[in-house]
Design a binder for these strands. Sequence first.
DNA 1: CAGTTTTAGTTACTTTATGAAACTAAAGTA
DNA 2: TACTTTAGTTTCATAAAGTAACTAAAACTG
Lengths: 119, 119
Amino acid sequence: MKKFKAHTSTCPIVHTMTYIGGKWKPIILGRLVNGAVRFGKLAVQIPDISRKILAEQLKELEEDGLIIRHSYNEKPPRVEYELSGIGQTVIPVLMAMTELGSEMHEAITKHKRSVTRAH
Amino acid sequence: MKKFKAHTSTCPIVHTMTYIGGKWKPIILGRLVNGAVRFGKLAVQIPDISRKILAEQLKELEEDGLIIRHSYNEKPPRVEYELSGIGQTVIPVLMAMTELGSEMHEAITKHKRSVTRAH
DNA sequence: CAGTTTTAGTTACTTTATGAAACTAAAGTA
DNA sequence: TACTTTAGTTTCATAAAGTAACTAAAACTG
């Protein structure tokens, strides 16, 4: 996703999308709501994300200050990610998305069936 | 954005992202909260979106049943888009994003300045 | 009447993002 | 010695988003 020009915009939703608009970011953040999680565990818990994209998105989230990366100097490596203070301000959005998800998925599935039938 | 495999997922946030995860979709929906808006007005109000992408995203939103397209048979054409019932269920997410936006933008700007100074 | 304006798109082409698969380092274990 | 474990990285392929120019058809302008 090409970066928005957040500084030139006055629309708050554009700002939000600038920071959590990546395809996987809300899903990653959602996994961190209950505490720190290791890289490998995120890769397993999030269906269909590739390790490359996971690593990229985590790096962006860290650079924006939404998450904190804890690297323990061990071999094999152990790295944990957790929400920062800024990251926690996103929780209301994540909750709203969580509440919406199943409900909307059902409604849209039904809608599409009816449209198909009406052909 | 490659489509999620919504049907194979049980994570509600994945479902939400399936339908409103497109880069511009929350921004478009946010413009429709206060009533129907014409295509051209959306193009003007949303900074930096191209007409091609706008048209594409509107078509997807319509196919998913989030918005309704009203085409008046006039020349030059007049087309309005408005939120459907399903689309209105997204409003809480849009509100949360709106509340978060400016606040988070400020916090992240400050965060990035402090990181830069600490080099 | 020829030429301009208006609107909601579309078309062809370029640039970014995202994805899949294989690969790496370094210590612990069999 | 060979195998396992972990957090990535690298290379190459595909999909999404962006740019600019173009279209149709009626109404308006001179």
